[in-house]
Every structure is written in structure tokens, then in C-alpha cells.
Design a binder for these strands. Structure first.
Lengths: 340, 340
DNA sequence: TATTTTTGCTAAATCGATTTAGTTAAACTT
DNA sequence: AAGTTTAACTAAATCGATTTAGCAAAAATA
């Protein structure tokens, strides 16, 4: 059974394909096609199970109704959920999403941007990896709209939507301080990106504001490779000696680190929150059923997704609008991992 | 900066676009294009940052190098990881994946198949929701290759790749029995799909083989909506009365159920494994740092992904090959949730 | 020298839609 | 009856690539 084209319908009905196109686009009235012919065309279209060829449509109209999405890793629950929200919101607007996982690797993202360009996507939603500034700058020049999510480049004028990472980390740290923790560590990852920087900055500011000296030894920046040994080493150094803990609390800047970290802590026999209190960014499932359910900084994924799509579609509709910078609040979800 | 087409290059170099196409496809030698012209064309192509229009290519050649992927939900870690493997394996073969989340809803999957058809994908990898048999049958008729994953329809002749769910559940149940559990419950979901059926069948067979009467009251089939109250109710009925437990172990047929179930159990103050032992399908992160790390049935996601892609690409290359049915073994990863 | 072969290139068709600019016949004006 | 409007439809161009068929000039061969 080979595909049905406009021409096939036109032939079978005995009219021009122009007419068929008009009718199938619901513009029969507008072009004064007689009701009888309209009906016939529609009948034959369903009879032959006509499916428009989106390549041809896209080629002719210059619009694909596809948007490209570049995130770090669709298998990471944070991005998985965010991606899902974006997919859903796009679908509501009759757009489809092409997913790409960059692994925070700028060479991959460059390839992916090129591929998406070649696919003639109508716009992009991008969580840009580090060292991708030039790609993003080049993308601006193509005039195809894009919005950045999760992070952004301060020097590039573009739409973006992020959370207030500084405030989030500040609040989380303040929460730990309020509960009497003094030696609060921060485990983060060596991605040179604003969002990670803001998290550590918020953490530092909270300490400062509470009159606590910042101890750089308590700030551990781990390689993105997420090797178990690195995490293990860091945890060991911070809390390995139970009588003489260097840290009595840890703020994890990502859930991936947090999950690995807690796994290590369990293996080392460290008790949460008795030995060490824990707060982590991102409200992933794992934290709900954890040894001691983990207090987390929840991001409003649904709102991020919805807003990203709506910003993008607005800009597609009107490329001239002023760029928007949106910063959403997070929510500190208090569970048991910090004691009380 | 508007897009560069073959014609733009042709004009600038002063040759025909035919020649440009030959050169850019690396077929310069084959068509005896002089080295000098070749060089010029390539230079101008990079100078103008030429990006081939994949819509036009696809339209002309009938091949898009895109494959459609329909899974239940990209935000579900099981499908997220599987999707990622598929994306990666496809990329190695210079194919791209268009993700669709069906939510196990056959109307959505029907729409998605239609959309993918319209997008002229070269093939599909589908985890078909229930009631989608007719869609899949119709898809066969289009002659566009597809492979089913995670589940399949016994009455439909097609490639598929699944795990041995029967054996997996059998082994898990046997493991619980070996550890002395007698009243083993099975929490599953009301998806009328072979994989779920096989899981419960394996569970039953293990009980039978160990001379234990099957108690239908211990098999709880919950609605797919995954409402917290349903899970809560089920857990309560099975283990609510601690002195008089109806079940001393639970086999969760999905990790989504398992995570919710364990959350309930914690809330009810039930101890794992002391009060109730737990085994679950799917090795998700949450189980690693759980109150009592959970013994799980791990699926070989990488292999499933690789095999799905390679089956599909083989069939794209040669549609005539005999259909293949692949059933991979799972791995029982023993942790602490069953005691010892 | 005449013929054939090779070299190096191009014109035009094609994929399947959309859209602009008509065309013809009927109906309506005046 | 002649001119104008309207109704109902179509031809052909177009998007940007690929590919088939073929052309002219140069080189090789007879």
C-alpha cells in the first residue's frame, strides 16, 4: 500500500490538486468550491487514508511546526520531566518536539543545532552546555527563534527562563543554619555555568549573612563524569571520620550528585540527619523513599516547560518582541533529612 | 542572514547546482568534476555556512534518516533510560529519533503514529499501549518497518524485543520463597498487555511450583492512573494490620508502583524487610538509596536499545528478512529489602 | 583526417505540497 | 444585447534537493 498524495485524490475525483489542497485545508468555502465536490474530495481522502507529507508542506511553507529541544540528558529525571512538560505544552499548540541529549558536551550540542537547523525547526529550546556561547551567538544570527532554559549566558541577549538559583541555595542553607548546623558543605559539579555558580553563591551569601566564615575546603567541585570514586572520596573527606566530622550538613547542587552521595553515606554507615543533614536541588523520586526522606529544592517544572514553549511560540509569531528574562521561584520541600 | 541553498553556491561559483550537489555529496571524482572546481565549491559552501535542507532531501530521496519512537512516558526513568540508549545507538548510525510519549493511551499513540507517518520516518520503535493492535496491524500494511519493544502482540507478526518477564517474576518470587516468605503479594497495574500478564504468570507459577496456593486476594491490580489513594488502600489492606499481616512480601510489577508503595509503607510505619519484604521490577535510582535498598529485577536497557535499533535498521536495509523475536534475560539484583 | 571515446559539465524532471494568477461559463446589470 | 460580476475551478510556479539524460569540447584512436 503506497502513500496517497494530493494528486491521487485529484485524479480519482477528477479535479485539480489545487482544489483538493483547498478543500483539505478547510478553505473550500473561501474558494467557492461546491459542496458536492468538497464532500467527494473529503470522502476520497479518508477512503485512501490520505496523510499530508509534512516534508513537502514544510518545504513549501517554510514552517515545520517542529521545535528542537537540547537538554543535557533525557535519562536524567530532571530533564526527563521537564522534557515531558515541554512535549505536552507543545502538543497543545500543535507543535512537535525533537529531543536531543547533549551530555553537557558542546561539540554534541553544536552537531545537534546543525541537525535541527537542517531539519528546518521553527525554533529551539536549549539548555546550553558550557563553552557553547559561540554556538548560541551564531544561532541568534540565523534569526530562528530560541529560548534558553535552566541556564543562560549573561552576555547574550536572548529569551531565557530559569529559576532563582541564588535564592534557592540561600534559603536551603539558611534552613540548615536555623536547625543548628554550622559546618555546611556544598557538593557541586565543575560545569562552568551560571546556574551552578549562582547556587554556590547563594550558599556562600547565606553563610556570610549568618556570620559564618566560608571554608573553601567544604566546597567540593566534582568532575561532571560523575565517577563514583570522586563522590566517595569527597564524602569520605567531609564525613568519613565520624567522631570528628568536617561537615555536619551537605547541600547537593544536583540530584545526580545527591543520589550518589547518599548511596556513599549509607555505605559508610553515616546516619542522615544525625551525622550529616542533607538538602539537595531537584525533587526526584529517589528522595521520597530515601533512608531519611530528603529535603529538596523543587523546581516548578510544569511552569518552566509551559513558559518556555509560550515564550518561543510568541517569538515565532512575532520575532520583533523584546526579549524576556524569566526567573521563577523554587520551593523548599522540607522532609526529614535535616532533622528538626 | 538567510539560508544558503545549493543554488546560491552554484551562482557564486558559476556552475550548475547539479555539480554542486555532486561535489557536496562527495561524488566529485565519480562524476569527473575537476579538482579546482571541487575545491571552489567546498570553499564557498563553508564560507556561506551551507546546511542541506533535510526536508528537500527527504522529499526527493524518500529517506529521512529519522525514526519514530513511541513509549509510555519519557519522564518515567525506565523509558527515559531506554529512550536515551535508543537515541545514542541511532546517532551512531546517523539516524535521529523523534520521541513521543503515549501515556499508554491508544488514542494518543494513533495520533502519534499518524504524525510520524506524515513526517516520513524511515521506521518506528514502538512500545504499544493496550488497545493499539489495530493501529499496529494497519502500520504493517504501510510497509514502513517497525519493531516493538517491552511488549508485543502475539497475534501480530512483527519484530519485537522484550525481556523474559515470566522468568524474571518467577525468579524474584522464588527468591522470596527461599528466604522464607509465604504470603507473597503481587501489585500490578491494569494494563492488559502481555508483559504485565507474563509477570503475574511467572509469580503464580513460582508459587505453584513451591506448593503454595495462589490467593487471588494477594494479587492487586491497580488502575493505571496511579492515584496515591489506590496504592495506599492496597498497601493498607495487605499490610495495614501489623500484628496480622495478610502479606509478608510484595512483588511490584512496575517501579512506579513500587516507589509509591514504599512511600506508603514508610508513612504507615511498616519496616522493610522486617514487616514486609519487597522486590520490584526495574532498577531505578530511587531503589538504591531507599530506606532499605530494594532488590530489583534489572532489565538490560542498553542491549534492548541497541538491539531495537539494529533490528530496525536491518529491516530498513532489507525489508524482506524474516521477523525476529528476541527475549532477553533480566538480572535479579539482590539488595536488602528481602532480608536474608 | 575522420571517428570514437573521454572529460567536464548542465538542463530538466522529480518528490508533494501551497499559492498566485488566471480561465471559462453562468448569472446578473443596465 | 453588451458589459460586468460571480461562481467554480485549473495551470503553473515554487520550495531545495537529487538524479537521469545528454551536450560540447578535447583527447584518443583508426
Amino acid at each position: 500500500m503506497k502513500r496517497t498524495s494530493l494528486n491521487d485524490i485529484a485524479k480519482q475525483v477528477g479535479v485539480s490538486k489545487t482544489l483538493v489542497s483547498f478543500v483539505l485545508n478547510g478553505r473550500g468555502k473561501e474558494f467557492r468550491i461546491s459542496d458536492e465536490i468538497c464532500r467527494k474530495v473529503l470522502d476520497v481522502a479518508t477512503e485512501l487514508n490520505y496523510q499530508p507529507n509534512r516534508l513537502a508542506q514544510g518545504l513549501r511553507t517554510g514552517k515545520t511546526r517542529n521545535i528542537g529541544l537540547i537538554i543535557a540528558d533525557i535519562a536524567n529525571p530532571f530533564f526527563g520531566k521537564l522534557g515531558r512538560e515541554i512535549e505536552q505544552e507543545a502538543a497543545l499548540n500543535d507543535y512537535h518536539v525533537i529531543f536531543c541529549s547533549s551530555d553537557e558536551n558542546s561539540e554534541k550540542s553544536a552537531q545537534q543545532i546543525a541537525m535541527l537547523q537542517q531539519s528546518q525547526v521553527d525554533g529551539y529550546i536549549i539548555s546550553p552546555p558550557m563553552n557553547s556561547e559561540e554556538q548560541i551567538r551564531a544561532l541568534s544570527k540565523t534569526q530562528v527563534p530560541f529560548v534558553l532554559i535552566d541556564r543562560y549566558f549573561p552576555e547574550i541577549e536572548s529569551d531565557y527562563i530559569v529559576v532563582d538559583n541564588f535564592d534557592a541555595a540561600y534559603q536551603a542553607t539558611a534552613h540548615l543554619l536555623r536547625l543548628g548546623r554550622k559546618k555546611i558543605a556544598n557538593l557541586t559539579v565543575n560545569l562552568n555555568l551560571v546556574n551552578m555558580k549562582e547556587r554556590t553563591d547563594g550558599y556562600k551569601k547565606a553563610l556570610e549573612d549568618h556570620g559564618i566564615r566560608i571554608d573553601e575546603a567544604l566546597i567540593r567541585v566534582l568532575p561532571f563524569s560523575h565517577d563514583n570514586r570522586d563522590v566517595n572520596m569527597a564524602i569520605r573527606e567531609l564525613a568519613g571520620d565520624r567522631k570528628n566530622l568536617k561537615a555536619d550538613a551537605i547541600l547537593f547542587s544536583t540530584s545526580k550528585l545527591g543520589v550518589m552521595g547518599i548511596e556513599c553515606m549509607s555505605a559508610l554507615g553515616l546516619k542522615i540527619p544525625d551525622d550529616v543533614a542533607v538538602v539537595s536541588f531537584d525533587n526526584v523520586d529517589a528522595y521520597k523513599i530515601c533512608v531519611s526522606p530528603v529535603t529538596v529544592i523543587g523546581q516548578p517544572l510544569k511552569e518552566i516547560g509551559k513558559t518556555a514553549v509560550s515564550l518561543l511560540l510568541n517569538r515565532i509569531a512575532d520575532p520583533a518582541t523584546k526579549t524576556q528574562h524569566i526567573r521563577l521561584k523554587t520551593e523548599l520541600i522540607i522532609r526529614k533529612s535535616c532533622g528538626s
